[in-house]
Computed example of a mutant assay.
Amino acid sequence: MMTKQAFTGARIFDGAAWHDRKALVVADGKIEGLIAEDSPTDAIRVPADGAMIVPGFIDLQVNGGGGALLNDTPTVDAIRTICTAFAQFGTTACLPTIVTDTVEKNIETIAAGVAAVERGIPGFLGLHLEGPHLAVSRKGAHEASLIRPMDESDLLRLLEARKHLPNLLITVAAETVGPEQISRLTAGGIVVSIGHSDGTYAQVKAAVEAGASMVTHLFNAQSQIGNREPGVVGSALDLPQISAGLIADGIHVHPASIGIALRAKRGPGQIFLVTDAMSITGTDWTSFELTGRTVYRKDGALRLGDGTLAGADLTMTAAIRYMHETIGAPLEEVLRMASLYPAMAIRQEAERGHLRRGARADFVVLDGVLDVRSTWIGGSRAFG
């Protein structure tokens, strides 16, 4: 039986509203509720004076961190390193992500994910397989020679993997993976996201009608809005079923474009934050290897030798700060973009992304400048 705790002295954001002079009560890894700070309780009081308590951040696209890169070392230890590295930045749940690679590497990654589930690694939410079924014309930093169509064996491997993982997200191109395949994937519980795609509005709409529900890193490596063809970007903003990840680092997307997208997006789908972080995040490295090519770190960006962006040198707290301070979005909405909206995108909002009674006790204690004081996963301190 886990100790019952009452966190006091902080402003509490439950995912919908702020609460003052309340205590957050946690027991057995779940949120028991909010009580008045001076209420009698059998819980151990944990002071968080002057801080903010907010729902834990959920990152659906994180390639690596703390020196580990899933493409290099598709192991349970690499998954543990990635989850641990980002706990210090408030991430309480993530989908370690592998970019386009060989069939063998994907098989190893899936096996590592299943092992991570069996070992109960804190913060491990499942896997994101970004590729290899993409459009070469929008490959970005993905290795073109490894991009290929999805065949029956690929599809069956994904469906089998989903049976053993809590969540499985895959990024595919709308013009490469057809509606019939998407329908089978989503019927099997896989979340399908459109990305690295030159798809037309009609192609994306057909994919969505077949079950696709996301767009990967909005604006990047996808067809843009045109006057006669809305492309993937226009589809993501117009089609209400779609949620879309956003890399908010001031490099991947112009701040004006972010503002336009936030104002234009039709719900219930939402724009949410992702880091697209690489192994270099959380280290002092100046470069690293990605599928046999060197990626260089300079001026806050990660680029291949030809200048192509290759992931991001970003944390969730930095993305939140950028959205709030540079873009000017209200803090509570930005916090939802880092917690509730990604939970909704993978249909986990019943127990994640908020601090209502019965939710997982995944939360972050932040100071006044949005730095992390401590991170709690399932009611246990993961950082701080």
Score class of each variant (00 low, 15 high):
363 F>A: 02
303 R>V: 06
52 M>R: 13
220 N>A: 10
244 A>Q: 01
125 L>Y: 03
256 A>P: 03
168 L>C: 00
241 Q>N: 09
199 G>K: 04
363 F>R: 12
124 F>K: 12
323 M>S: 00
120 G>Y: 06
206 A>F: 05
45 R>Y: 06
116 A>S: 11
289 E>V: 15
334 V>D: 03
273 L>I: 11
1 M>H: 02
108 E>S: 13
198 D>R: 02
225 I>H: 05
150 M>T: 03
196 H>Y: 11
331 L>V: 14
32 E>R: 01
383 F>R: 00
362 D>F: 06
341 Y>A: 09
32 E>I: 09
334 V>P: 05
87 A>T: 13
22 K>R: 15
266 R>A: 13
305 G>I: 15
26 V>G: 10
229 E>P: 08
380 S>L: 12
194 I>Q: 06
309 L>C: 09
189 G>W: 10
53 I>T: 03
251 I>R: 09
135 A>D: 12
84 T>M: 04
209 E>Q: 14
115 A>E: 15
261 A>F: 07
269 G>H: 10
301 A>H: 03
142 H>A: 06
4 K>A: 12
373 R>K: 15
284 D>N: 11
157 R>K: 08
138 R>N: 09
40 P>A: 09
268 P>D: 03
80 R>F: 05
222 Q>N: 02
248 A>M: 09
112 A>S: 04
347 R>H: 14
291 T>I: 07
74 P>S: 12
242 I>Y: 01
180 E>I: 08
61 Q>N: 02
276 D>W: 09
115 A>D: 15
93 A>Q: 05
195 G>C: 11
30 K>Y: 08
33 G>S: 02
286 T>D: 00
178 G>S: 04
299 D>Q: 05
267 G>W: 10
161 A>Q: 11
6 A>N: 04
258 I>L: 00
57 F>L: 10
171 T>Y: 04
152 E>N: 07
153 S>R: 14
238 D>Y: 04
215 V>H: 04
260 I>Q: 01
105 K>M: 10
287 S>V: 00
226 G>R: 12
78 A>Q: 06
208 V>M: 08
256 A>T: 14
105 K>S: 11
156 L>P: 04
372 V>N: 05
332 E>H: 12
290 L>Y: 13
47 P>W: 15
176 T>R: 10
8 T>D: 02
163 K>M: 01
37 E>Y: 02
